[in-house]
Design a protein around this nucleic acid. Structure first.
Lengths: 209, 209
DNA sequence: ACCTGAACACCGTTCAAGT
DNA sequence: ACCTGAACACCGTTCAAGT
């Protein structure tokens, strides 16, 4: 029950928030905790175990203390999705780590269970629930990771880079959509619209037993 | 036009395929090419530019030489999705890199354009096409990254880890779905089913102008 | 139990120098 | 133009030793 481990993990979170994940080294972490690098191995075993511990801390913060019973399945799914996106907006370095490790910690299993019960309540046939859970979580984590890594906003780097590198006649889609492509994107509204489309997909799956 | 750069990038791909992405160091790459580490900077500028160049090579291999005109939009979307998954199955280390960099290279822009035209042909209102392109690509890359990183198969590490860590009454979804949770998953079939659900989502978007 | 010092085998990158 | 050698400021981790 030693809070020492949590203290170390939280120090690592602070370093990542301030200077990025690549700044989280055993040596820098030891410095921050006020100890020699080797002392960390008493509490963490490994660098990769350290990273696992860090996302574990985030998952604990992400989850609702108790799943509210008075919400519809649509609301519970939306709340979990927004919570996930909120965590990766606060800790952009964490986004791609969510893809790296399977859902084996207790908190991650609880998150999966929330989606399972939402899908069951939606009326999805039980044999289809595990697949649709993976579809939903893949999309939500993928959106969060795309936003965090800047995949959704290439224009900020070089506004004209999307076109110009190729002759326009080879990009009929871009030419046709030109009026829409330079508009700023409201990712919060887009995420909500995406979630609504996913909910419709789930309703369709529920309606074909 | 010097093929020297491509030679170096392909050597880096070989190292990653054989020993993982973390084995791709400037020094190891220089050894493989038969040169001193510093000589690489003549052709690559940076380590991160090296990584960009590597995914660039993969994207070129992934794309169809010319978009076939005789396929339906459903077929073109499916072909691109399967090509993407195929690349990350052959090069698992590449999956999470696809999330890191925005689609700015000519090949990446061409891939986006293929999805744009598929969505336009499906009848999606033009104002909705960019959002749905991001939804589709996020899901496809997310699926590929999940599969490559093992996020979809936690059972291979520890078959009983999903349950057992928490009391069963806190995991009603898992308890209810128990008969389905230990079955082996056919990810090829699952990806196809997911794609079909996404296509239905697109048809729905096309039907509400 | 918990921590330290010194050491090993690595990194990416800069800089001046060579041909 | 293209490459090299030496150096700088870092890594994760092991191992024997200290309290």
């Amino acid at each position: 029950m030693s809070g020492r481990r949590e203290e170390i993990l939280d120090a690592a979170l602070d370093i990542a928030d301030e200077h990025g994940l690549e700044a989280v080294s055993m040596r820098a972490l030891a410095d921050r905790v006020g100890v020699t690098p080797m002392a960390l191995y008493r509490h963490v075993k490994d660098k990769s175990a350290l990273l696992d511990g860090m996302i574990g801390r985030l998952l604990t913060a992400l989850l609702p203390a108790r799943t509210p019973e008075d919400q519809t399945w649509e609301e519970r799914l939306g709340a979990l999705g927004h919570a996930c996106r909120e965590v990766t907006r606060r800790h952009p370095w964490a986004a791609h780590l969510l893809f790296s490790r399977p859902a084996v910690t207790p908190d991650a299993v609880r998150a999966v269970d929330i989606v399972y019960t939402a899908l069951i309540d939606a009326g999805v046939p039980e044999s289809q629930v595990p697949r649709l859970e993976r579809l939903v979580s893949t999309f939500v984590i993928g959106f969060a990771a795309s936003e965090a890594s800047g995949r959704f906003s290439p224009g900020t780097l070089d506004p004209r880079s999307r076109r110009g590198q190729l002759p326009d006649e080879e990009l009929p889609g871009h030419r046709r959509l030109a009026p829409y492509l330079d508009l700023p994107v409201d990712l919060t509204a887009e995420f909500e619209a995406d979630l609504e489309d996913i909910r419709a997909l789930i309703r369709a799956a529920a309606g074909r037993p």
